[in-house]
């Protein structure tokens, strides 16, 4: 077997990833490749397991089965230092921002820099944090506020700044635009596109906001009943020919998708 050129090697490779909570099958065999520099968006209904998928990749949840390969190395089952080393190359924007409310904004942004010893001292870390804040369009005065003094949109921006501060190779965005007004949502979308391009990073985002999905995605995947039922170029998502995808992207109440909160375990594979 001849070794393939490095740029065709996926940055992130998932094979048959499964996760269940009790009797509820959430991920039922996920296969996914994300290429370097690509921006992939996973869409899917509320409770379809999108956040669980991200948490499995980040090692916050342990999949029951399957393999998750980042940069050619298996990461399922990694612990402690080894996991930290992998995570040092990842950035994550949480659904609820998850800012540390005991720390001022700039220390939130600089957290990864200080902990990961990316900078020599606190002054330098602060400088880098201020640059990141400017990048997401926040004024310098915000730096010394605590997260509870910010609006939801501002918290999302700080979360975004924190996710990109360490200049990660892969960034994950969990519903970056939910709960924001349409203009702010579009601003965040632009920021995501700009920052990932700027970093040259690979991006894996989650959303159920189609405007956001088509804006930030190179490719789109739809998660339904624990499986990726459709994966394709972002441009084709409106003419996928898949009834489930059609119903979802057009937001219609009638169609094959009946009740997302349906607790019947998705076709149990095992």
């Amino acid at each position: 077997m001849t070794p393939r050129p490095p740029d065709t090697e996926p940055k992130l490779r998932l094979r048959d990833v499964r996760k269940r909570f009790g009797a509820q099958m959430v991920l039922d065999g996920i296969d996914l490749d994300v290429m370097p520099g690509e921006s992939l968006v996973v869409i899917g209904g509320s409770g379809s397991g999108k956040s669980v998928l991200l948490k499995c990749i980040l090692g916050l949840l342990r999949p029951d089965a399957g393999s998750i390969v980042i940069d050619g190395a298996e990461t399922v089952g990694l612990d402690g230092r080894a996991r930290d080393r992998v995570n040092a190359h990842l950035g994550m924007l949480f659904q609820g921002a998850a800012l540390f409310d005991s720390l001022p904004v700039w220390q939130n942004v600089a957290f990864g820099l200080i902990q990961g010893r990316h900078t020599r001292n606190r002054a330098e870390a602060r400088e880098r944090a201020m640059a990141c804040l400017a990048q997401v369009g926040l004024r310098p005065e915000v730096a010394d506020l605590v997260p509870s003094e910010l609006s939801g949109g501002m918290q999302k921006r700080v979360g975004l700044a924190r996710a990109i501060a360490t200049r990660p190779d892969i960034v994950f965005f969990d519903e970056p635009t939910t709960g924001l007004d349409p203009i702010m949502a579009d601003v965040i979308n632009d920021l995501i596109v700009a920052t990932t391009k700027d970093l040259g990073a690979t991006a894996l985002s989650i959303t159920h906001d189609m405007a956001s999905a088509t804006k930030i995605a190179d490719r789109i995947a739809m998660l339904y009943r624990g499986r990726l039922i459709w994966v394709g170029p972002a441009k084709q998502v409106f003419e996928s020919g898949n009834a489930h995808v059609d119903q979802f992207v057009h937001g219609r109440a009638d169609g094959p998708i009946t009740d997302e909160t349906d607790k019947t375990p998705a076709r149990s594979g095992r």
Partner: peptide, 21 residues
Amino acid sequence: AEIGTMRVTEQIDALSTLSTN
């Protein structure tokens, strides 16, 4: 209360993703 709040608001998860145990 403090650590519990950090747990339910995913701040503990955020710590791990920032390579902090």
